[in-house]
Design a protein around this nucleic acid. Structure first.
Lengths: 189, 189
DNA sequence: TCATCTACTCATCGCTTGTTGAGCCAACCT
DNA sequence: AGGTTGGCTCAACAAGCGATGAGTAGATGA
């Protein structure tokens, strides 16, 4: 049997369970509809403990929806890998962020910063006129695809297997872009 | 000077001001963050009057974000017109609906129903394999464009004039449906 | 072993929310 | 003119929220 955990271990375990619970709740219901009480219940702790760990609901959301680890995420370097990754599913912290990006100003800002960065990167490897605009269209198309499949659950996008949707989406995005597409790319979304 | 308005006129005027105020508040802050008190204040009436008119906050949102008039909207019959319309700006009731589509289940359902319909229509005039999937990609791309320009306010999409963005977006979309495009289309989004 | 420290809970506060019912006042009808 | 209707407001309620501070129990270290 495992010996009783040390106090630091216990603390860390609680911290992670609280953060996981917060990500799940924020991802499922959005910022406003998520209550500290619900997060605490899911984590199996007292609501006051959540406050002790994070200080406020806003700070908890900031920690739960952090973008830091996402930038250098599992997302591959090629645009096709990004599409495949987004079609397969979103990591919990991104899910929480996207869920609230239209209703929480701070989330809107974070998402804009994140996407603007992706647009700038993609535009750098996009030749021809209106490079930035067209890069933005690609980024927004992937965003729309993500929303349609995982949040709105559109029939045409939800039913297909990840492989099918991913394949068609990649072909659709690549269409007629005889202008771009160097062999090595930067991470995009 | 105008004679004192009749009781029915007064009632109708209040009803419209309440509905306009509700649309503006829901569009700006989303369902959860919008309060009956804020709607009433914007309309210049007592909160209780809002309740008397609509019965509940949920019913008010249902009335404010109605899709009925949108389906046969100003949106033209050609896909290009839809793009131009979406780039130019959203009507208030659609704005309110989109704002809350990720956080309010009923809004999610309404949006799914709306977009699924658009996908089905567009798929009907899309030749080749994976017609429905590719139609869904087009619809989601326009959704993403709308979000990027009016809600997330991405730099690349917000700065450009409506004409420029619309023109580049139409060309970008046309390149991705080179096989389709009969001269006359059905209304899409 | 015993005092201390700390992770955690309990009870509760103040506030805001949606919602309600009683009451007021001007328009209405005869 | 005078009783009645109805649009509207006022005051308040119950519920749920985020947040706080005191208290408890068990691990910790000398």
């Amino acid at each position: 049997m495992p010996s009783s955990p040390t106090r630091a271990e216990q603390r860390a375990a609680s911290a992670r369970r609280i953060l996981d619970a917060a990500r799940a709740e924020f991802a499922a219901h959005g910022y406003e509809s998520t209550t500290i009480r619900a997060v605490a219940a899911r984590a199996g702790v007292d609501p006051a403990l959540v406050m002790q760990h994070h200080g406020s609901k806003a700070a908890l959301f900031r920690s739960a929806a952090r973008l830091d680890a996402v930038t250098s995420e599992e997302v591959g370097s090629h645009l096709d890998d990004v599409v495949a990754s987004r079609v397969a599913g979103l990591p919990p912290e991104l899910h929480a962020l996207v869920r609230s990006m239209l209703t929480v100003p701070e989330a809107t800002d974070a998402m804009r910063e994140y996407l603007d960065d992706r647009v700038a990167n993609l535009a750098r490897s996009t030749p021809g006129p209106d490079a930035e605009l067209r890069a933005a269209l690609t980024v927004c198309a992937i965003l729309g695809l993500t929303l349609g499949r995982h949040f709105l659950r559109l029939g045409a996008l939800e039913q297909g297997s990840a492989e099918d949707v991913s394949r068609v989406a990649r072909a659709w995005l690549a269409a007629r872009s005889e202008d771009a597409e160097p062999p090595e790319d930067r991470p995009e979304d």
